[in-house]
Design a protein around this nucleic acid. Sequence first.
DNA 1: GGTCTTGAAATGAACGTTCATTCTGCAAAA
DNA 2: TTTTGCAGAATGAACGTTCATTTCAAGACC
Lengths: 223, 223
Amino acid sequence: MFIPMPRPSHSPRSASKLPPDAAPVSRRASGVSATEAADEKREAILDAALDLFSERGFYGTAVPLLAERAKVAAGTIYRYFENKEAIVNALYRRQKEFLGHALLAEFPFDSPPRDQFHYFWTSACDFARKNPKALAFLELHHHQSYLDALSREVETRVLAPAYAFFTMTAEKKVTKPYPAELLGSIVWGSFVGLIRASWEKRIELTDEAIEQAENCVWEAIRR
Amino acid sequence: MFIPMPRPSHSPRSASKLPPDAAPVSRRASGVSATEAADEKREAILDAALDLFSERGFYGTAVPLLAERAKVAAGTIYRYFENKEAIVNALYRRQKEFLGHALLAEFPFDSPPRDQFHYFWTSACDFARKNPKALAFLELHHHQSYLDALSREVETRVLAPAYAFFTMTAEKKVTKPYPAELLGSIVWGSFVGLIRASWEKRIELTDEAIEQAENCVWEAIRR
DNA sequence: GGTCTTGAAATGAACGTTCATTCTGCAAAA
DNA sequence: TTTTGCAGAATGAACGTTCATTTCAAGACC
C-alpha cells in the first residue's frame, strides 16, 4: 500500500546534476550495453517528440502522451531531459544541424553558381521528401519563444553559408544586385511554399515539379 | 455551502442555441445599444484572440488570459462562443475573408497580367505591413487540426482566384507553362518568406525591398 | 417586472513534474 | 557455481497548478 509522505519543497535531485544536453552515462567506462541502452531511450524520446511536436506543436503535445509514444514511463523522460522545453530545444538543434549537413555534405564548392544552386535545390527537396517531419518540425517551431539562445545560435550558424552564397553570386554579377537576405528569403520561402503545397496535396512533388520549381526560382534570382 | 450536482455530459445550453458564428442577439428588433454592446464585446474577444493566438498559438493561449486581454470575465466568453475552437475558427474565417477582400477589392481585371501581378504583390505587402498579426495568425493556424470544414471551405474559396489567374496567364503564354498550383505556391511562398524575414529583422520591408522582391518573383513566373 | 447579461467563483480534468519504490544486471562473496 | 549486495535505471501514482468550462447571484435593460 502506498503511504504519501511529506516531501521537501525543493529537493536538489541528489548528487547527479544532469548535463544540459547529454545522455546520462554509467560510471563504468568499459561497459557499453548500458550506455547504448540509455542512448536508445533518449533516441526513442526524441523520435516520439519529432512525431508529436511536428503534428501538434509544442503546447499541443502532452508529456504523458510523449512518454507513451516513446514507450517509456513519464518519469523516465526526466532522467534524460531537464524539462519539456529542453526536449524541444535538443530536437530543434539536432534537426537544424541535420538539415545543415544534408545541404552542405557534398556541396560542389568549385562548381559554377548555377550548378551550386541546382545542388542546393535538389538536396533540399530530397531532404523534404525523406524527412517531412523534420522539415515540418523546423518550420513550425522556428523562432518560437521557448527556443533558447543556443538553439538560435545553431539557427544562425546553419543559415550563414546561404548568405555567403548570395553575397558571392551577387558580387560575381550572376544573381541580381539585391541584398543576400532578400534573395535568400525568396528562395527559402519558395521552397517551403512548394513543400507545403505538396503536404496539402495541392501539387505532387515529382521530379518534374521539382525541376520546374528550380527553374522558376533560379530565374527569380539570376541577373 | 456548495453542493456539486451531476452535470449533463453535453448540456444543450438551455433554450437559446447559439448560432455557430453570430453574436447573441437581443429579441427586440428595434433596439440598438444592447446589440451594439454585445457586438463590441465579441469584437474585443476576437481582437484579444488575434493578439494571443498569433503570438503563442492555439494551445499556448489560455482562455482566462484571453478573457483578461479582452477585459471580460472568463465566463462571458462562453456567451459569445461555444468553446475555444469556435473562437479560433471564427477568427480564421474572418481574417481569411479580410485578406481575400484586401487582395480583390480593387483588382484591375481589365489590365495586363503584369499590372495585375503588380497590384497583387503591392496589395499583399500592404496587407502584411498594416495587419502583421492577421498574416501571422493565418500562417500559424493554416491547415491545423482544430479548423473545421467551414474554415477550410473559406480557405479554398479565397484561394480560387489565384489559381484562376495563373491558369489564365499560362494560357495566354505570359507565365511559364507549369501547373497553376506550382506557380501559386512559389509566389505565395516567396511572399511569406519575405514577410517572415522582415518580422525576424533579417531585412527591412521598405518600398524598395518590396519592389525588388516583386521583380524577382515576376521573373520566377513569367515566360 | 421580467428577461437578459455579466463575471467571480467553482468545477473536474488534464497538465508538467516529482519521488518513493521496484526492477535489473553485474561483481564480490561464499 | 551459486548467492548476495548494491547502484543505477525505470516506474507510475501522486502532487500542485493551470486548464477549459459551468454555475448562479446580482445588476442592467426595456
